[in-house]
Amino acid sequence: MTDQPRRSYDLLLENIEADLRSGAISLGDQLPGERTLAETYGISRASVREGIRILDAMGVLRSSSGSGPKSGAIIISEPSAGLSSALRLHMASSRLPVADIVQTRILLETWAAAAGAAQPPSDAADTALASAAALLEAMDAPGIEREAYHLLDAQFHVVLSSLAGNAVIETMMASLSGAISGYVQKAVDSMDDWPAVMTQLQHHHHGIYDAVAARRGDDAAKLLREHIQWFYLQIPREEKDGSS
């Protein structure tokens, strides 16, 4: 097997990584212009543009045209956005089966529920629980549309996962949620018995929230597992077959 040829923009990516690690650049900093970057790293401006586009897609940069302090390439950190995009593409190519994504969600969310219950009380936890309660109230609104319910549902799960206090788990949950958003929305839209499904989901969500709020980690983990598995079983077979 031959080595892959080194791409010229790799040098830009490696140096930005090194500068972030060393503290030479940090969140909110603006990168120099294309010409300066090209001269600094000895690569073409086309390679600089390609590297910037890749870092933008990865959620490391936010690039915009024009002039002023908010133009150009700004260092940010939104890892879930880049991971979600990559997961969606691999799911579309059938490389990552939806059933495996579901199993991964179960592993992450049940662990997060148990870990969250073991965390000492904090203002951050209180804020997260208040946010989860507000999302529950919004999902209980009479006549809520399917799309709105789905979006609130996804946020609810990510917020609960944040109680574990693990930034990587929270990022992975947000990424998985973003990756399957289109798939779940399509499945929800195809459900003829959606009102009954939504009623059951509301019951599940309140039970999960009550267990989390009472710091009953094992109960919350069990309810989350049953909830995720139950919803997956409600998805029409043709939807599963078309995305796995």
Rank of each mutant, 00 (worst) to 15 (best):
L27N: 08
R88M: 08
L13Q: 02
G59F: 03
M191W: 07
S162E: 14
P79L: 07
R21G: 04
W111I: 11
D10N: 07
A167H: 12
D10H: 08
L87P: 05
A81I: 09
T40E: 10
M198K: 13
D56Q: 02
K222P: 03
N166C: 05
L83K: 10
A46N: 07
A213N: 01
I75M: 09
A154C: 03
S8Y: 01
E137R: 15
E17R: 14
D140H: 13
A46Q: 12
P79E: 07
D189Q: 12
S71Y: 06
E78M: 02
L233D: 14
T127S: 11
A57C: 04
S243H: 15
S122K: 04
S80G: 09
R21K: 15
D19V: 06
V197Y: 10
E239H: 12
E170S: 15
L233T: 15
A128E: 09
P120Y: 04
I75F: 02
L27E: 08
V102N: 13
R216H: 01
P195S: 00
E34T: 15
T104C: 12
A174V: 02
D189K: 12
S93F: 10
A221R: 05
V48E: 08
W230Q: 08
S94W: 13
L61N: 05
E145D: 08
E50T: 12
S26H: 01
F231S: 01
G68N: 06
V184D: 09
W111R: 15
E239F: 11
G51Y: 03
W230V: 05
A99H: 14
T171L: 10
D241R: 15
E50R: 13
Y232W: 09
G42H: 04
V158K: 12
D19I: 01
L152C: 07
A214T: 01
K222V: 13
S63W: 02
T171P: 01
Q4N: 11
D153P: 06
A92E: 14
I169H: 11
F231H: 00
A213T: 03
S244G: 13
R7H: 07
A220Y: 00
D10W: 09
G23H: 00
L20R: 03
G28H: 10
G33A: 13
A179V: 06
R35W: 09
M198D: 09
